[in-house]
Each structure stands twice: as structure tokens, then as C-alpha cells.
Amino acid sequence: MRVFPVYAPKLIVKHARIFLTGVIWVKDLGRLEFEKGRFLLPRKSLPKVKQAILELNELIEAQN
């Protein structure tokens, strides 16, 4: 598990694309899981977490 002390979308996306499957922890967002290079949306999450995951997945799609 990698810990990101700040929310840096480009760096987080780079990590997810390299490792494809895993878990990261982002300060103020908490634990985020990714599989096959995409972030998974938890069943229950705060609106800011949901927005961050959608933003990260959009960045991943834009890079493909």
C-alpha cells in the first residue's frame, strides 16, 4: 500500500497504471482500491471521495 500525503491526481494515476491492482491511501480521502488500472467506487463513500475517483478514472481514460 502506497501512502500519498496530498491529493496529486497525476501521480496517483501513474501509480495505478504501473501496478494495475492494489490499494493506496490518500490523506483526506482515505483508502482507494484499483483493479486493472481503474479505481473502484466503494458502495458507500463521501461525495468528495466519489468525485476524486471519477476524476482519476477520467484521467486514466484520457491517457489511453
Rank of each mutant, 00 (worst) to 15 (best):
I60N: 04
L41V: 08
Q51S: 09
L40H: 06
A16L: 06
K36A: 12
K10I: 12
N57M: 03
E61A: 12
L20V: 08
L20E: 13
A62R: 12
D28Q: 14
G30A: 04
G22N: 02
V49S: 04
V26K: 00
W25H: 05
E58C: 11
K44Q: 08
L54Y: 12
N64S: 09
P9E: 04
L29A: 01
P9D: 02
R31I: 08
V49M: 13
V3H: 15
V26A: 02
V23R: 15
N57A: 02
K14M: 14
A8D: 09
D28G: 15
I60H: 04
L11I: 08
E58W: 09
H15K: 02
I60D: 02
K27Q: 13
I24R: 00
L20K: 07
E61Y: 10
E61H: 09
I53M: 04
V13A: 13
I24N: 00
K27G: 14
L29Y: 06
P47M: 13
V23I: 12
K50F: 08
V49T: 06
K27V: 15
V26G: 00
K50A: 05
L40N: 07
W25P: 00
H15I: 04
T21H: 12
R17K: 08
V49F: 06
L46C: 12
L32H: 01
R31L: 06
M1C: 15
P47W: 10
P47S: 12
L54K: 12
R17H: 07
K48V: 07
E35S: 11
V3R: 08
F39D: 02
E33G: 10
A16Q: 02
N64C: 11
E35F: 12
Y7L: 03
N57H: 02
V49C: 05
R38S: 08
F4T: 01
F34D: 00
K27C: 15
S45I: 11
E35M: 13
R17G: 09
A16E: 00
G22F: 03
E58D: 09
Q63F: 10
N64G: 10
S45M: 13
L29M: 09
P5R: 15
D28P: 14
K50E: 05
L41S: 08
T21M: 10
A8N: 08
R31E: 14
G30H: 02
P42I: 06
K36V: 06
K44M: 07
F39M: 03
L20Y: 12
K10W: 12
G22W: 02
E33R: 15
K14G: 10
A8G: 03
K36W: 10
L59Y: 06
I12L: 05
M1A: 15
R2L: 15
K10N: 12
L59A: 06
F4I: 03
L59T: 05
L32A: 01
V6S: 05
E61Q: 10
F39V: 02
V6Y: 14
M1G: 15
L20W: 08
I60T: 05
G37A: 10
L59K: 05
K48D: 06
A52P: 01
A52M: 05
F4R: 00
F19L: 08
V13C: 06
A62W: 11
K10C: 13
K10Q: 12
R43Y: 06
F34R: 00
L59E: 09
L11T: 06
Q63W: 13
L56T: 00
S45E: 07
L46V: 12
V3I: 04
F4L: 02
A8F: 11
R31M: 06
W25M: 09
R2G: 07
K44R: 13
D28M: 12
G37S: 07
R2C: 15
K36M: 12
I60C: 05
R38K: 09
P5Q: 15
T21C: 12
Q51I: 09
R38I: 07
L54S: 09
E35A: 14
L20F: 07
F19S: 11
V6A: 05
I53C: 06
P42L: 08
I18Y: 15
A8Q: 09
E33L: 12
R17M: 11
A8P: 01
P42Y: 09
L41E: 06
D28K: 15
F19P: 00
F19W: 15
L41W: 08
P9V: 04
M1L: 06
R31C: 13
I60A: 07
I24D: 00
Y7D: 01
P42E: 05
P47D: 07
K36Q: 13
L54G: 08
F34W: 04
W25E: 14
Y7I: 02
I60Q: 05
P9G: 04
E35K: 14
A52S: 06
L59N: 04
